[in-house]
Amino acid sequence: MTDYLQDLATIRGIMEKRTKFISLSGLSGILAGIYALVGAFLAYRVIYYSENTVYEAYINGIWSVEITKLLVIAFSVLTLASVTGLFLSMKKAKRLGQEFWNPSAIRMVTSFLVPLVTGGIFVAILILRGHAGWVPPALLLFYGIALHAAGNYTFSDVKTLGLLQIALGLIAAVYPGYGLVLWAVGFGGLHIIYGAVMYFKYER
């Protein structure tokens, strides 16, 4: 009898290992894109309509109000997008009758967070050391790598999205002046397209 129980346990183990996380919400992708576009617009206004030249002050080691404002915008967009994503994905999991924190979800989140947190710390170091120009390509690159890694455990479309973000990150590294535009394209445009594709492909 224990043999049969073990047979079942083996099957269960294999299936859990190979099952993909399918509760990821497409709608949350669209919303994250919209937040990012609003954020990029606000950041644009902070940079181009401020009285002092933000960048010059920054490279001279002066911490201006504008820098704080930019960081607040970036952080708010990130928090809002994460909370929306989590909330809508949990709702979708419930609707699909799936457990949200199943083994594949945990694997997906860890493989996503390792590159992302590394990138976050790296970017913080860049800012503190006065290399803010490298922040846009660095964030796009690390975010793309994180998505590509997480894509192994969920819809393969996430992998494609990751590769596109990496491509934008590399372009941003070559043309530092277009950092904000490429950010808007990556975090805004690509998320909206991705979310729409996911929504129509899997959720309707």
């Binding site: 083996t10 099957i11 190979r18």
Partner: peptide
């Protein structure tokens, strides 16, 4: 109770073959 009697599928009454099919089910 020992494994292998009753009317179980002889081919699948083997953990490796069962594991192979589990992978291919997904």
């Amino acid at each position: 109770m020992k494994k292998g009697f009753l009317d179980l599928d002889k081919i699948l009454d083997n953990r490796i073959r069962l594991s192979i099919l589990s992978i291919l089910m997904i």
